[in-house]
Amino acid sequence: MISGIDGTGNGMALKVAVPLALLVIWGVLSNIIDNSFILPSPLSVIYVLAYPWGNILGSGTLLDNALVSLQRVTFGFLAALIVAIPLGICMGRYETVYHLFDKATAMLRPIPPLAWVPLSLAWLKIGMGSMLFIIAIGAFFPILLNTIDGIRGVKNSWIEAVAMLGAGEYDLLTRVFLPGAAPTIWTGLRVGFGIAWMCVVAAEMMPGASTGLGYLIMYAYGWGQIQVVMAGMVVIGLIGLAIDLVFKSVEVKWFSWRRLDK
């Protein structure tokens, strides 16, 4: 093998080696430290995880809070997508629209979603609205940039061939631009959802939040229940992983043409 990733050794053993080792190190360390306020034992965390329907410190179950967070991330993500995809299509297709929005979006993009917290509280007050705003900001830019890239990556020969068959702007949009850009837009959605998921946890730590995984782990921290904090983190990680796998499997199923078409 000269370059790229070595293809040998795709076995299960290889894939679980590092997670298992971390678990063992964690177990040993927690034994040595012997202070559950700093590092609870893996078993105590697993115990919390084993009863996701159990009420935790009177602030709902792990499952309920996870569902609330998922609901929030979905709405925030959808809000971002509804604006970012049409805007990205127009910016990718029309030079004028691109120049109109390019500088503004390029300036807003480096501002981290968390920097928007004070403004979102000032504008939308404490509650659902400000949380969705933070989540949407996080998801917006990856979707926008990938949509622009995807539309620009549509080959001129595809566009002209279909235009020669009598396609108007609308036919070109639905038959060439959207399907041609779909794999790249999908990548944007995947990255955007990942960031939105990070933002929901952060948004739930804002003042006024009283549900969600982000709230739960802050609340548990306040009560010194570090094993709940860690269980919450594990759930956040697992849900993020599961969603990413769903996005990836759709990519493999629908967009294999991009890989195969050389």
Binding site: K155, S157, W158, E160, A161, V162, M164, R175, V176, P179, G180, A182, F255, W257, R258, L260, D261
Partner: peptide, 14 residues
């Protein structure tokens, strides 16, 4: 009324 065949490969791969 005019059909065009391009030099580049112009079929839609999807």
């Amino acid at each position: 009324k005019m059909g065009m065949i391009f030099q580049e490969y112009s079929l839609l791969p999807w």
